[in-house]
Amino acid sequence: MQKLLLIGACFLMLYGCKKKEGEQDDNEDELVFFSFQDMPKEQEVDPDANEILLNWKEYQDFQSSLNVMYRAANNEDLALAVEDLVEKEQALQSGGYPEVFHKPQIKSRQRVFKTYLLKLKASIEDRTDVNEPMRQLLTANNAWRNQFNVIISNKLDTKLILDEN
Rank of each mutant, 00 (worst) to 15 (best):
L80K: 10
I152M: 09
N74W: 02
E87W: 00
K3M: 12
I152T: 12
Y15W: 10
D129E: 15
K159D: 14
L5R: 01
Q147K: 09
K121H: 07
D163C: 01
K107G: 00
Q37T: 09
F148C: 02
A122N: 02
T139K: 09
A122Q: 03
R135Q: 14
F11R: 01
K159Q: 06
F34N: 06
I152W: 01
F148V: 06
A140W: 15
K107N: 05
D157G: 12
N131M: 03
L138E: 12
Q37P: 00
Q2S: 11
Y116D: 04
G96V: 11
D38M: 05
E125L: 14
L6Q: 00
M1A: 13
E42I: 10
K18Y: 12
D157C: 09
A73L: 07
V100N: 04
L120D: 02
W144Q: 11
Q24W: 04
V100A: 04
N55L: 07
Y97C: 07
D25S: 08
M39T: 13
D38T: 13
I7F: 00
L78V: 04
K20L: 11
N27M: 03
L85N: 13
H102K: 13
D48C: 04
Q37R: 12
E44I: 04
P40C: 07
H102R: 13
A73I: 02
P104Q: 10
R145M: 02
M13R: 01
D48E: 15
D48Q: 15
V86K: 14
F36Q: 14
V68P: 08
L31W: 05
I52N: 14
M69S: 13
E30Q: 08
K114D: 06
Q136M: 13
I7T: 02
Y15D: 03
D129Q: 07
E89Q: 12
L80D: 15
V45R: 01
Q2D: 12
L66F: 15
V45G: 00
D61Y: 07
R109G: 01
K19H: 06
I106Y: 05
Y116V: 01
K18N: 05
Q110C: 00
F36D: 14
V150C: 03
V130W: 14
V68Y: 10
G95Y: 04
W144E: 07
L6P: 00
S65G: 15
L160S: 09
V32Q: 05
S153G: 01
S108W: 04
K20E: 13
L12F: 11
F34H: 10
N75C: 02
S64G: 10
W56Q: 03
Q93I: 14
I152P: 07
V130G: 08
R135C: 07
Q147E: 12
Q63L: 09
M134T: 15
F113I: 04
K41P: 00
